[in-house]
């Protein structure tokens, strides 16, 4: 026997898996979003009613949820970049090379805590009798403890905590690939440290920022746990709205339509960032 011919069929099992358990479910969901529940049975009627419900039902609750989601996600992405960039920069240029790997692993260690547990931990920190309040009241900076959980602030804080670690990783990976000689050349040509950073290092590191920011956007806008645990139910984000339809109402058609809207937003973000990536390279 000469061989298995793996080169000609090796990709088939993976493609079959992706087709059966990813593409097919998406098509099923698309069809579900144009179906109706008639007398407890779901029937494909090619209706756009579910999308109409997204726009008008419950006095714009769903459109509001979309707006909230986009606002929280954009804010999260910007803040995470602002926190992570200096951190990645310090790791790449200030920490001695032989310690870098160790410091990097330590810096993103909490990345490996369970996602549910991480949000829960922030709840402990932020609650009315939590660590921060006890510290602030104890130091006399605050007269009365302030509950900081169940708010948009808490959601964004929880998100930034997680995604700053992710972005530190992508930006660091990009920074260490930039050759030192570029900065030295800039310095030789008379640029001061800030000019060298602004005109050389920063533009060259933008691909790492773009990759991390895109991942942050996709993962944050689709996340249900963080807003549910930290944000509470005072204001609804889109994934929470989807889960509400699934849970209490078992309204699969509406949940599917809402998910399609969510996917559309991510696609738009992808197209925007793909263009930005190309511009960054030129």
């Amino acid at each position: 026997m000469r061989g298995w011919g793996l080169k000609s069929w090796g990709h088939v099992p993976a493609l079959a898996w992706t087709g059966a358990f990813f593409v097919l479910p998406l098509v099923a969901m698309l069809l579900m979003s144009v179906s109706e529940r008639i007398g407890g049975k779901i029937t494909l009627t090619w209706t756009l009613g579910n999308y109409q419900a997204f726009l008008t039902k419950a006095e714009g609750t769903f459109v509001g949820a979309l707006v909230n989601s986009v606002e929280v996600t954009v804010l999260t992405t910007i803040l995470s970049v602002l926190v992570a960039y200096p951190l990645a920069y310090i790791l790449a240029y200030r920490v001695p090379v032989r310690w870098q790997r160790l410091v990097l692993v330590l810096t993103i260690l909490p990345f490996w805590t369970s996602y549910v547990i991480r949000s829960y931990s922030w709840l402990l920190v932020l609650s009315e009798n939590g660590v921060i309040n006890q510290f602030l009241v104890g130091a006399g900076l605050l007269a009365e403890p302030v509950g900081m959980g169940n708010s948009r602030f808490a959601t964004v804080l929880g998100f930034v905590h997680f995604f700053a670690m992710l972005l530190t990783l992508t930006i660091y990976a990009n920074l260490v690939q930039i050759k030192d000689s570029y900065r030295k050349a800039a310095a030789d040509l008379g640029a001061n440290a800030f000019q060298a950073f602004w005109h050389v290092t920063l533009p060259l590191s933008l691909p790492g920022v773009a990759v991390g920011a895109f991942l942050t956007f996709v993962l944050a806008i689709g996340d249900y746990i963080t807003p549910q645990i930290l944000g509470g139910s005072k204001e609804l984000l889109l994934p929470q709205a989807v889960m509400l339809q699934l849970g209490r109402q078992a309204d699969f058609p509406l949940a599917s339509a809402l998910s399609m809207v969510l996917m559309l937003v991510v696609t738009v973000a992808f197209l925007l960032s793909a263009r930005h990536l190309k511009m960054g390279r030129v």
Partner: peptide, 30 residues
Amino acid sequence: KHRLSGLYQFLLMAPITVSYLIIGMGLQIT
């Protein structure tokens, strides 16, 4: 080099751009 290599790679990477919530819901419906 397969004739449709580009398409295959795109399909294999596609799930990374879709929220877990949507993948889970699609599977549940199916």
